[in-house]
C-alpha cells in the first residue's frame, strides 16, 4: 500500500476529486494548508505598509492506494491539478505498512 500526499492549488480541488472519482478512487482526506516551495515568499506593499507574504494557501489531499493502483492515481492527480504555472504543487508517495478499518477490524487492502 502507498500513501499519496498531494499539495495542489485550492481551485483545482474539485477537478482532482472529479478525476479521481472517474477513475474509481473516491477516498480522500483534505486539508486546508499554507506553505511555500522553492519560490518562498514575497513582500507586498499595501497603503505604504510592507507585508511579508510567505505562506500561500494550498490544499493538501491524502489518500492510500493499493500498490497496483499507484501509478494510475498519481497520474490522475497530476493531470487534473496541472495548470503549467508556478505553484501547481507537488505529489509525494510513501510506503504504508498496513491499514485497519476500526469498525470491522479488516486489514490491508480490504481496509482502504
Amino acid at each position: 500500500m502507498k500513501k499519496i500526499e498531494a499539495i495542489i492549488q485550492p481551485f483545482k480541488l474539485d477537478d482532482v476529486r472529479e478525476a479521481l472519482k472517474s477513475c474509481g478512487h473516491d477516498r480522500l482526506t483534505i486539508y486546508d494548508v499554507r506553505g511555500h516551495g522553492r519560490q518562498k515568499g514575497h513582500k507586498e506593499v499595501y497603503r505604504g505598509q510592507e507585508y511579508e507574504v510567505d505562506l500561500l494557501p494550498k490544499v493538501k489531499l491524502e489518500t492510500i492506494v493499493p500498490d497496483g493502483r499507484l501509478d494510475e492515481v498519481v497520474k490522475t492527480i497530476i493531470e487534473a491539478a496541472r495548470t503549467g504555472k508556478i505553484g501547481d504543487g507537488k505529489v509525494f508517495v510513501s510506503d504504508v505498512s498496513t491499514a485497519i478499518r476500526i469498525r470491522s477490524g479488516e486489514e490491508g487492502d480490504d481496509a482502504i
Binding site: 494548508v33 499554507r34 505562506l55 494557501p57
Partner: peptide, 15 residues
C-alpha cells in the same frame, strides 16, 4: 473554520 487560509486567499484575490 480554516479562517487564516480563507483570508489569505481573499486578500490575494482582492490585491
Amino acid at each position: 473554520a480554516a479562517l487564516q487560509w480563507r483570508k489569505q486567499l481573499l486578500w490575494r484575490l482582492y490585491r
